[in-house]
Design a binder for these strands. Structure first.
Lengths: 221, 221
DNA sequence: TGTACATCAGTGAACGCGCGTTCACTGATGTAC
DNA sequence: TGTACATCAGTGAACGCGCGTTCACTGATGTAC
């Protein structure tokens, strides 16, 4: 709105190159990890000189920031799309696993060991609130009204959550739902992160089945 | 045995310097992460020249290998000591949390995102089998005989584990116990790793209470 | 439609840096007679 | 107890490398009249 929405050829070209830089960056992260990201290496792979990239990103840190933001956005989109398609908690869990396996380094960039010395921008927390909101909706649908109503003697942690629910933002979920959402998050992450880090390789069992079992421990189905 | 067990002064000095190198290495990992480990920086911090360290470690990779081995060994020792002192599953869980919080980077070096391009030596898997054995013992003690006896219709995952139990080595634990051990491992890791990565900061609730709640989900107490 | 000018993508040289690792060496410490 | 020799910790110079980033520049593309 307001200004012209039509992109000039130059703007289109610019956006296109910017996108290719990110693609090459992801390729590099996939093979050597985020801490090994090098602007010069990306440029070389694109047939450009190193300094050329400074037309598109002010610094290496800004590029990483952009990648982190994209990763968060991508997960939020996947969640929202799946929820809009009527998926329940199990559906979201499968979406999460799919998203993680599609690009392990993307998952690890968001939920893995933080890149040393790197500080995430605030707007990623805004996106993770979006993600959490979808999860809270699904958790609300998962529990019966009886399970959600305030218990006469709530569990220790539910009582704690009743007083520390700032992270849920405006979401009206009762403590039992907040508790379930945190359990979903940490249990699924527990399996996924160990799987992606290769800690199950050589153990013999199928990580997908462990993931499914943990999901069942949460939905009771 | 056989050869002299008495260390010459030179051997003692050597072991001492080797130990200090590792200490400085851990300090460096604590501030900048494992991928930023630099032999030259360690040497400088010790008031030595860079090449001097090659008297003690053949390469940077060998030093990292040693640190990983030490980390595994340290956790195995902590577990075995706690078990020998009569700790149950809850006791082991607290030991794990303590061990992780004592030195977050040590935990992440073992269970976090793998250092890119780094290949762990085989004898660490031997140590992780030791760790798993302690965990399996505690899980065996946690379940009643009835819970351990083969169910008429075992859960999907238990049936899968019955046929994929190579990772448990010689341990005679039934599928239900194997399942519990994996759930303990992944659930506790799920909370711990997100906590250490700073994903709970700013959310408001107390990670220790979430950890305790997840532990209760496993012990039923 | 043609010309003058502004914009801007990309280059190549350069800066300063720190890295892992090798090599020939010095000098102190320990060992054998 | 004293001398000759071997061991070995540590040094300093050097190699080759790749990094992020700056700067003055060329040349193509787009814009205004």
């Amino acid at each position: 709105m307001g200004a012209s929405d039509v992109r000039t050829p130059r703007e289109r070209y610019r956006a296109q190159v910017q996108e290719e830089i990110k693609e090459r960056a992801w390729e590099q992260i996939a093979t050597a990890g985020a801490s090994a990201l090098s602007l010069n290496a990306i440029a070389k792979r694109m047939g450009m000189s190193g300094p050329a990239l400074y037309r598109y990103f002010a610094s290496r840190d800004e590029l990483i920031t952009e990648l982190v933001r994209d990763a968060y956005r991508s997960l939020a989109d996947a969640f929202q799309a799946r929820a809009a398609a009527g998926a329940d908690l199990a559906g979201l869990a499968q979406a999460l696993r799919q998203w993680a396996l599609d690009d392990p380094q993307r998952y690890l960039l968001v939920y893995g060991t933080p890149v040393p010395g790197y500080r995430a921008p605030e707007d990623t927390t805004r996106i993770s609130v979006e993600i959490m909101a979808v999860l809270l909706d699904a958790c609300t649908a998962e529990l019966s009204p009886a399970e959600q109503s305030p218990a006469v003697s709530p569990s220790l942690f539910d009582a704690h959550l009743a007083e520390h629910r700032a992270w849920a933002g405006e979401h009206p979920a009762p403590p039992a739902v907040l508790h379930l959402a945190l359990a979903v998050w940490t249990r699924l992450h527990g399996v996924l992160s160990l799987e992606l880090a290769g800690h199950f390789t050589g153990m013999g069992f199928d990580p997908a089945q462990l993931y499914a079992a943990e999901l069942r421990s949460l939905t009771g189905r």
